[in-house]
Write a protein that binds this DNA or RNA. Sequence first.
RNA 1: CGGGGUGUAGCGCAGUUGGCUAGCGCGCAGCUUUCGGAUAGCUGAGGUCAGAGGUUCAAGUCCUCUCAUCCCGACCA
Length: 415
Amino acid sequence: MRFSTLFTKTRKDAPKDEIAKNAQLLIKAGFIHKEMAGVYSYLPLGKRVQEKIISIVREEMDKIGGQELVMTSLQKKEVWEITDRWDDEKVDVWFKAKLKNDTEVGFGWSHEEQITAMMKDYISSYRDLPANVYQFQTKLRNEVRAKSGVMRTREFVMKDLYSYSRSEEEHNEFYNKVIEAYHTIYKRLGIGDATFFTFASGGAFTQFSHEFQTLTEAGEDTIYLHRDKKIAINEEVLTDEVLSQLEIKREELEKVKAAEVGNIFSFGSNKCEQIGLYYSDKDGSQKPVVLGSYGIGITRVIGVIVELFSDEKGIVWPENISPYTVHLVSLAGEDENVKNRANEVYEQLTTKGIEVLFDDRADVPAGQKFSDADLIGIPHRIIVSTKTGEKVEYKARMGNESQLMSLDELISKFI
RNA sequence: CGGGGUGUAGCGCAGUUGGCUAGCGCGCAGCUUUCGGAUAGCUGAGGUCAGAGGUUCAAGUCCUCUCAUCCCGACCA
């Protein structure tokens, strides 16, 4: 992508109505645009980051047998009435509207009910199970208070996976697979070391649900971390009973702030019984399907990563989710030779399949180009100038020293 | 939903006890200059001062209401 044609631009000052670091940096660098409180559009750079994250999550979901689909945002109220979650008194985040004929519809804030009702059309035999389906979908939640930039919004992209199993054993086996897949995902996203498997409230269905919590001061949750065991306990379930159950002593725990980047939950067979999703087992008996639900807040992850990986100059994207792999800076000025050389470097890199943001802007001083590069946060930088001649200069976003190398040598770093 | 803060150009801000055609910086357009960390200069465009109502000879400034937005709390599979 040539910077000169990118319609977004960087800005020096963040809007004063953004306090959260993630939103300030993402807006300054041109990744997102705020529409209203808790509602952000994703601009080309932000969209690319989103897609990178989605690709990683998709790969790991597919590996454990997930099948991708996409549900609708418009949901009918009947299915939510079955589980008594249509009432605004029971669920306070509903956005609702009416069709022209006055039929009430809801905008999906979750999809458990809807997708389970749909699966009744496809699951009737033990031969149809297990079925594990997932989607990347925009959730709409009428939060009373949006906050923390993109971390707590009214409209956000979520990966939600639902598992339908024949038995608790089959369910637990898959549940554990998801835990492993999530660890892999967070590792690939660059936040593995800061993300902890956390015991949280299980609600009416089980004793615990499990969360994946990433340590950050910008997080909303308080968790108690056991660093040696690499697990944590959400404040909401921290009792002596739970501690003894997990064989943890209170004094071994460290109280920290964290952001929930994933949540996995067992519903048992309860919800399928309510909605009427049963299957015929080998012996001909009717049995309820066992349901599990597994979420990852894609857009929240972006915010968490920016909170974790940034400095006073800007963002520092982890390798795997950077919008581009390298940021090529041309300091050509009016020098035609340097211009040509920069174009040649750009063409060769892109031909090799390397994703390049090429700052080919004329009339922009070098300092501004460097500042923009720091702000946007692509981890690798390549400079072409009168000084570099037949070589190119390489510098890491976080490094101080740069080095001259041949283009081939450079390309070999990325292929 | 309770408490507190903020609304003046695309962004960041100034605007005194109410007083003339509402300013500054950045950004934007044109010209010149410069070209390894936001170069310098000149010219120019851009404003229902969040909205409505009120007080006054006169309101960006005072009063009332509304809206938006941020923060704290409550809430949060």
